[in-house]
Computed example of a mutant assay.
Amino acid sequence: MFELDRELAQDIVTRAMAILPYNVNVMDSQGLILASGEPSRIDTRHEGAQLVLSNARVVAIDSQAAACLKGVQPGINLPLFFDRRLIGVLGITGEPEQVRLYGELLRMTAEMLVAQRHQQAERQWRRQRSDDLMALLLEEGGDAPRLLDEARLLGLKPQLMRTPWLFELAGGQSAERLGDWLQGRYPDSWCVSPAAGSLLWCQPGASLDEPAQAQLLERVEAQGWQVLRVAVGELAEGVEGMRHGYRRVRDLLAYGRAILPRQRLLGLARYRLPTLLWHYRDDEAVRELLRPLQRLRARDAGGQLLGTLRCWCEHRGHGQACADALGVHRNSLRYRLERIAELSGVDPLRLDGLLTLYLGLQLLPEA
């Protein structure tokens, strides 16, 4: 239920007295003066206002009548209505015949300001409730029928297919403002800030391809946000799919931060297997993948052999392409690969050895 507050009452008084040569008072539904051009009258009872509240009608008080009432000056007092409910009183000091017209115009303006403030409060409540509801829906067990029904009533469309993006912003950047910007350009977006400097954006519709993802990141940064990195998932259906997608991009972002610190745009389609390995990085079977590389790194002071192995994996074991990328002769490349096999105990020239080393490299931080 909407009630007049001091801030709104003072706004009405300030606007009115910037135009009118008369004092203006605004009283609440109990006749207490909330705002006045005469500050000493604030928080006192206004008997004229109480007469208005008792009868829900305009009360004009001339000089003679004012002398009989406590704390009242000549003027006109008008009821303020919102949604057909009496919420307060507006008073203008002066002889009633002189200020009546001003009073009617001012009441109309004040009731418009009240309606506008109510709409703002309603929008703010809906926005806050929508944010809270989205956060609840993305938590484990957040698909209760009651929450889904409320989401539909608020127009959140939980049934839509969406793609999760998880942004990590530099310190001091406002994730909420970035969410507002994205929601303004992509209707039906969901935006939730799981932590300071972090924004989960559930982009409506199909996933963007890599060039389009890069273009969007450029547009975001052109607006002034400094993005450290962003993880982009795949199209998910409904709330349960979105919840699963959020877990995947959260793992992907953590993987990128630890293993690929220079990579700012991380797509799940490209890093699906490394992200899966990262999720189980504490498992002994996964840690075994790193041991051959740890032996190699201990004897590879300049990092040349590790760099060669990364290049070998990137070119899928194609000798000439790898040698050209490294700028060495194929014989030099073969010598390096033999040295890698000797130091790591795993032969990169064999398919099983190459696969073992490749998987281990996905968990080895880039220098």
Rank of each mutant, 00 (worst) to 15 (best):
L113D: 02
E139Y: 10
D132Y: 12
W225H: 12
P211Q: 01
E150I: 06
L357N: 02
A67C: 04
E7T: 07
R229A: 15
E3K: 07
R339N: 04
H315P: 11
V24P: 10
V346I: 09
T109F: 12
M134G: 13
L169F: 08
Q304L: 14
T14Q: 12
S29W: 11
Q124Y: 04
V232N: 05
L296E: 00
I259V: 15
G241E: 03
W181Y: 06
A323R: 05
L86M: 06
L166W: 12
G245M: 00
L51T: 11
R6T: 09
G142Y: 05
E342P: 04
G345S: 11
D11A: 13
Q64Y: 05
A254W: 05
D300Y: 07
Q294H: 10
A66N: 01
R262Y: 06
P79G: 09
V59R: 01
A367M: 13
L8Y: 03
E140F: 02
L337H: 03
L148H: 10
H244M: 13
G303Y: 04
R57D: 11
A321K: 02
S40T: 11
R287V: 07
W312A: 07
R272E: 15
E97G: 14
L133R: 06
F82Y: 15
V286Q: 03
K70S: 11
I92Y: 11
W125V: 03
L199W: 00
D251N: 14
R123P: 05
A269M: 10
G238P: 11
G233K: 10
R229D: 04
Q98V: 07
N23S: 07
V99L: 01
N77D: 08
C322L: 05
Q124R: 13
L106I: 04
Q223G: 01
Q294T: 15
L153E: 07
L69P: 04
L138A: 05
L354P: 02
R250Y: 11
G37K: 00
